[in-house]
Nucleic acid binder design. Sequence first.
DNA 1: TTGAAAGCGGTACCAG
DNA 2: CTGGTACCGCTTTCAA
Lengths: 351, 351
Amino acid sequence: MQKKDAITIKDIAKALNLSVATVSRSLKDSYQISEQTKKKVRAYAEANHYMPNLMAQSLKNRKTRSIGLMICSIPNNFLAEVISGIESAANSKNYHVIITQSHESFEREMQNLDFLTSRAVDGFLVSIATETQNFSHFEEILSQNLPIVFFDRIPDIDNIHQVVSDNHEGAYNATKHLLQNGFTKIGHITSSVNLSITKERLEGYYKALEEFNIPLNEMYIKYCHHGGMLLEEVEKAISELLAAQIPVDAILTASDRITTATLKSLQERGLKIPDDIGIVGFTNFSFPELFNPPLTTVNQSAFEMGKTAAELLITQIESKRPLKAFEKIILPAVLTVRKTSMKAKQNTVSS
Amino acid sequence: MQKKDAITIKDIAKALNLSVATVSRSLKDSYQISEQTKKKVRAYAEANHYMPNLMAQSLKNRKTRSIGLMICSIPNNFLAEVISGIESAANSKNYHVIITQSHESFEREMQNLDFLTSRAVDGFLVSIATETQNFSHFEEILSQNLPIVFFDRIPDIDNIHQVVSDNHEGAYNATKHLLQNGFTKIGHITSSVNLSITKERLEGYYKALEEFNIPLNEMYIKYCHHGGMLLEEVEKAISELLAAQIPVDAILTASDRITTATLKSLQERGLKIPDDIGIVGFTNFSFPELFNPPLTTVNQSAFEMGKTAAELLITQIESKRPLKAFEKIILPAVLTVRKTSMKAKQNTVSS
DNA sequence: TTGAAAGCGGTACCAG
DNA sequence: CTGGTACCGCTTTCAA
């Protein structure tokens, strides 16, 4: 296999009786070159479909105009939208993005980081894996002055740039809403304990309970170490919630995968929603009203998150010196009430 | 911003008192180098975390170990899975993939092709946009001996490599199933006329009708030129199907987006499924049983499609000369019957 | 079995 | 305003 040879700067120089230096400068519109020459060069380049060889430029400039993305999984309503936002922002600034999936594995996360490093990406966009508890691999990259913007799931490291959802608010509103609708025994199925999103959502959940003077029941909190990738872990969580001494009467699910898996499990058990059990779920599925019954959701600004994170990263890549102002951008997570969280009758615990 | 300098082949040479040529050869396990020297070099390289500079290698070899992907949109249950399959295959062969979205625009498709070309990808994986009717941009690439593997939506070009679903079979089975369940006035909402998948699905649909001696009603076929990206186009299609002289009693939807959009529209109209109208949809949503009612689906081998296409492409990239055997790999599209296509009572047209 | 050196396609420094 | 040239890191031919 051989490609048709593309025209190079040298060819232009020869054709126009100029030096490569002059051609190179003309092409970058250097002030030192006469308009006349520039025009000639540009015209010739245009006419012959000159395209700079990015490999050569990269080798010289130490910039690849590429950014590395690390997420747990692509087939995920939330993340697919995030990727779309990233791709859109990157593309418009003439960057390309290299996607890697950790599948929630710490091991894979480190491998992927190596992979991206070997690709010499100019910066990283990362949402950490559920398994990850040690962040030295990221710190090492940061110490080399390579920019990282973390999004969604943030590691516990000082001085980082991050773009996140208002998880606290989202979970708080969801829980409060359930309480206001007469649910009092609210379970919470969430991801790994160590994730930032888990902690924040948990806090929102706590806060709402507190406001309603509902004592916290630790047994009502279930963690899925694979972030809902495995149906079994969600199954188990639900079984336990339902088998509690005082079974839950509602569930708040904390991620896209967990939400759908929960719905599925509840359905298989033949439970009536919301009469037998209420549910509010974090998800970015486009039409939650199509579920049976229509699902009350907490929807994150996924596309926006990807776009913002990518823009923030590119700004850093292109800035002369490291940004010292570490940004934490918080995007809304909005509750939309539908059927799954509305008790048929308000006579909750009929005494 | 500057990165910490990585160790190069030159550093190794200096440290070991060897020439760069010898080091380079040792690293690629050349037969001309003594085992002793190789061992020494490898040990030093390992110990100092030597990583070859891919930019330099690419510049020299004219290979970037990257493949360009072009699809209409990332947030799509079917495509997200395809991407996952591609990513997985590519990664395991040490390639990276650059994703671009056409958003169903011909214009964007060409821009993206340029973008990928400027990135010097070693090959392309493409599923064409609904708008695309002219394929010269692909033919030009092909003429440069750059490999392309088309998947899902195939252009009308001779001698290409392709990986597709058994769309004919999928649509045929779906339609037959509807007919067997007493639906006789079956509408079909599909993508652009010009797409291969559209034609194939249409044929499967025809074939089933024929077998049941149902005359074809052209008014029952509705095309969505944006592939279901716009809710309005689906809305319009449904309105027309329902406003026909003899309204449809069932619908076969031909893509992920169209399927969910149809469900949504039907629900908003307050139509009871399947009593008022039956539906079978192509989709790769993970839990179609969660819809109301559980959706009868045609599910494609999405992950497999991505994996297969990527592997086929990489084989071509790495083969010395163009493969002359043009492969057409057909993957199953399987019908799973659920509620939306089962009439409550079999007394269809009670006379 | 090893080394010297040309060169991939640009960029940028130094001269003039 | 323009040209010459070293160099980015690696591969490969040619010579030793």
